[in-house]
Design a protein around this nucleic acid. Sequence first.
DNA 1: GGGAATCAGGACCTCTCCGGTCCTGTTTTC
DNA 2: GAAAACAGGACCGGAGAGGTCCTGATTCCC
Lengths: 158, 158
Amino acid sequence: MIRITKQTDYGIVLLTHLAAAPERQVNAPELAGETHLPLPMVSKILKVLVREGLLDSHRGVKGGYSLSRSPEEISMAEVVAALEGPIAITECIDDQSGCSHEPLCPVRGRWHRINAALREALAGISLAEMAETPRPEPKLVTLGRRPALAVAPLGQEH
Amino acid sequence: MIRITKQTDYGIVLLTHLAAAPERQVNAPELAGETHLPLPMVSKILKVLVREGLLDSHRGVKGGYSLSRSPEEISMAEVVAALEGPIAITECIDDQSGCSHEPLCPVRGRWHRINAALREALAGISLAEMAETPRPEPKLVTLGRRPALAVAPLGQEH
DNA sequence: GGGAATCAGGACCTCTCCGGTCCTGTTTTC
DNA sequence: GAAAACAGGACCGGAGAGGTCCTGATTCCC
């Protein structure tokens, strides 16, 4: 259903959390606690983000993670690309995709506009913008209702 | 990887094929043959498209399928929505989504811009455009690079 | 009116991959 | 040297995508 994976979702939450205090260095257990996400997943995702160059890591007793750049310099496109791979809605990512249907495909080449639009939309939003404190909205207290397809029973089991 | 499903992919191919000759009425085996897609899948997808109102069907010996409207009047947003459900990259589809993480979620409400951008990108392309025989340079996507906070309401939800 | 062709609407199966856990290193600090 | 933290895997269960098939209901044509 055109969804990002939970890993990406969590990754964005983690990065956003870090962006709120960019100088801080936080270790995995702390981050998990503060974001209410399961530690093993947090740890796994942080490693990916380090490998992709969005985070710096420091080993040892006083170790932890911090943003590799300022939040203003990190776009959502980079974040999603780091966690999901190339941003494209279809397999036909570029003209050299080599799709086996290509010689017959009537929509050949048409998807690029849509893919590009999505990429631009993500590139136009920085991590800093994602981290802005939301203006107070009282209507948010609708805890009981869940969307029909949201199944993940996470973080609520205590 | 933020992909549409194959079902949607095939559906777009089928609709595009039909859009090339909008008056024509074609049955499932013919369509499968002409698009080089497996008949059972074609049949399955056509039924969905009828149910969603994008195709008209006619039973009986001379039966078949045809577009319910002219290709110009059908947007890719409708097509994708028919085959995938509501267009949104995250579970947080709207402000009333009631995600269980919501009270703690730091990106609460921030995804709507991205979802809206994707929707607009899809709404801005008609089936007729998808069916055009490829020509050198289609007009640029005007969608992406606009001031980050200026999110126009998307006027395409019937 | 009967048979053939077609759509309608399921049930059903297989297999990939997401979501999640865990284990064994290596590095750094005290 | 012990403890605390990151690094980098392997591993597993389940959901859902992709695909097939079967049994009706409808319409056309002889």
